[in-house]
Computed example of a mutant assay.
Amino acid sequence: MPPFAALRAFEAVGRLGGIRRAAQELSVDHAAISRHLRGLEEWAGVKLIDRDQGGRLTPEGAKYLARISAALEEISRATIDLTHRGDDSRLVIWSVPGFAYRWLIRRLPDFNAAHPGFDLEVRPTDHAPDFSRHEADADIRYIRDLAPAAEADVQTFQIARPPVFPAATPQVAARIGVGAPVVSLLGETLLHEDDDSEWRTWLAARDVETPDRLGGPRLWHAHLTLDAARRGQGIVLTNALLAGDELASGELVELSLRPTAPEIRLGSYVFRTRKDRWRDPSVTKFRRWLEKAAARDATAEAR
């Protein structure tokens, strides 16, 4: 048998399509994944990764992946059944990082007070779990409009669908001026997450033609773009759910631009779990608490 750590690394690279994603999922650095891959190839005497083709699997690697994936999935399912059978007080939640850091974490004391002794694990991650592999019990994602429909075996509910708007420090806002045209933002430093698609969509909804590429740093996570904006490094496209604290303290202000309409929503925060887990006691406890917390926020915002 080859080393199990090497098998896990190879399977993660093949399933996720890259060393960086595999390293993030397994919580190790890139170098460790690369060492595991080289070690597995040396052990087997077969090239599994074509490094000249961007790290794609070789034909032999693809065949090997198909067979070991099934074996690793069976090990995972057996372990879940062994360790969690009848356990209605433990839940593993994956979440898009911005929601976890900026909204969920500050409300968890309320959940813990309502459910003492409940073992809740929250993992901020860019990648949705594979429910078929029992990677998580439930998941919270930001689902952009026009995204593919949810998988047939996944049940969801919408936590919030907030409008988005540009925000910056009061100093930056004063320099831009009240009532400045939206098109003037093209001359500013725009802060992006993984790409410029959200800014591009928002600007298009305000009838602003955009260049082929919008400038500004890519910071990957919503909480990082907010922190950069708070430090005066540019303009963030955000919502009140994520930026509530900074807006309340005055560290950030919503820019007053023309035109002021329409109100723009780009997607929703969505709770997801397998349909056969929807009424599990642990999932139900967390889901009902989450529904109530989101409803309280919506009521407070309406006031």
Rank of each mutant, 00 (worst) to 15 (best):
M1D: 04
P3R: 13
P3D: 15
A6H: 08
L7Q: 05
R8A: 01
R15M: 11
Q24H: 02
D29V: 12
G39S: 13
L40S: 04
E41P: 14
W43F: 15
W43P: 03
A44T: 06
G45Y: 02
V46K: 09
R51H: 06
D52H: 12
Q53V: 10
G61W: 06
Y64F: 15
Y64T: 08
Y64A: 12
L65E: 05
A66H: 09
R67W: 05
E74D: 14
S76N: 05
A78K: 13
T83M: 10
H84T: 13
R85L: 12
R85C: 07
G86A: 09
S89G: 13
W94R: 14
W94N: 05
V96H: 01
P97R: 06
G98D: 07
R102W: 00
R102Q: 10
L104G: 08
R107M: 11
R107A: 07
L108D: 04
P109N: 08
P109T: 13
D110Q: 15
F111K: 02
P116M: 13
P116Y: 06
G117N: 05
G117K: 03
L120P: 00
P124R: 02
D126R: 14
H127W: 02
A128M: 08
S132Y: 06
H134D: 07
A136H: 02
D137R: 09
A138I: 05
A138R: 00
D139M: 11
Y142T: 04
L146E: 04
P148A: 03
A149P: 03
A150V: 08
V154W: 02
Q155D: 09
Q155L: 15
Q158W: 04
A160G: 04
A160I: 14
P162S: 10
F165S: 07
A168H: 00
T169W: 10
P170E: 00
P170I: 09
Q171C: 10
R175P: 05
V178M: 13
V178C: 08
G179R: 14
V182A: 15
L185N: 07
L186V: 09
G187V: 13
L190A: 03
L190M: 12
D196C: 11
D196G: 10
D196N: 08
R200C: 09
T201S: 14
W202I: 01
W202E: 05
L203I: 02
A205V: 09
D207W: 02
P211M: 10
P217S: 01
R218I: 12
R218N: 07
L219A: 00
D227Y: 04
D227K: 13
A228C: 10
A229T: 03
R230V: 10
R230K: 14
R230I: 06
G234L: 14
T238G: 06
L242A: 11
L242H: 07
L242K: 00
E246W: 09
S249V: 12
L252E: 06
L252P: 00
L255I: 12
P259Q: 04
T260E: 14
T260G: 08
L266G: 00
Y269A: 08
Y269Q: 04
V270D: 07
K275A: 09
W278V: 00
D280T: 11
P281V: 03
S282T: 00
S282D: 02
R287E: 03
R287Q: 05
W289A: 01
E291Q: 15
K292F: 12
A294T: 10
A294G: 10
A295T: 13
T299W: 15
A302W: 07
A302C: 14
R303Q: 12
